[in-house]
Design a protein around this nucleic acid. Structure first.
Lengths: 118, 118
DNA sequence: CTGTATCCATGATGATACTG
DNA sequence: CAGTATCATCATGGATACAG
């Protein structure tokens, strides 16, 4: 990741593999626990989810609230800044979903025009 | 990359490290040659630029025009679909640039509150 | 429950040399 | 000029075990 360009790094964070999913899950203002978030996303390792949440928290997009009880009770939600980010990422995500049919047919056309040497 | 989710793959393509830069360079409707594109982006290996352009071309975002002359003359530009994608990616990129100051200060606050064990 | 630490597989990226 | 081929390197992601 190009460290010389701060905005690029931020962009990578919010559009990262798991970053997109975390933001979209929290977009509705929900305050989810670690395990709930993990189940909602689907298949994601603890390590990756933790790493993604740390990054987004450090960037000021995600708010982490830990209740000092045993067993631990931690919830994650979006900050106002995170809500803005999530809304935009979600919009882009929706657009790609809309564009998917066009992309798929473009791929079919491309593959037809560029046959792999068999 | 999760193959089971087509739209996610498309999102990865347009928000990829070099994909973002290619789309932004071509956003103004320019029709750039391979070497011009490479210089405009800055530091990118031939391999990565080629790979990125192939992916975007296959997805129907980029149009490749090769003139059958020697030496080869190839130009790249955006398709209408690619223009839409580029506009949205660029908008997100601009937003992250705007949000950068807030993110940077959030990081400072986070690092102050979470000192690394020294 | 919510993580952290470790090791390992995989893929992305890059440098270099070469071709039509 | 515009790539392709190859190899080396490095970051990313995941499985597992374990700690507070």
């Amino acid at each position: 990741m190009d460290v010389s360009c701060p905005e690029r790094v931020i962009l990578e964070h919010v559009t990262s593999r798991w970053g997109v999913l975390v933001l979209c899950e929290l977009l509705d203002g929900a305050e989810l626990r670690f395990s709930a978030l993990r189940r909602a996303i689907g298949i994601v390792s603890e390590k990756m989810l933790t790493q993604t949440l740390r990054t987004l928290e450090r960037d000021g997009f995600v708010l982490r609230r830990a209740l000092p009880v045993i067993p631990p009770h931690v919830t994650y939600s979006l900050t106002p800044l995170g809500l803005e980010a999530a809304a935009r990422v979600h919009a882009l995500s929706v657009w790609t979903a809309d564009a998917a049919p066009a992309v798929l047919s473009a791929r079919t056309a491309y593959d037809a025009a560029h046959p792999s040497p068999s």
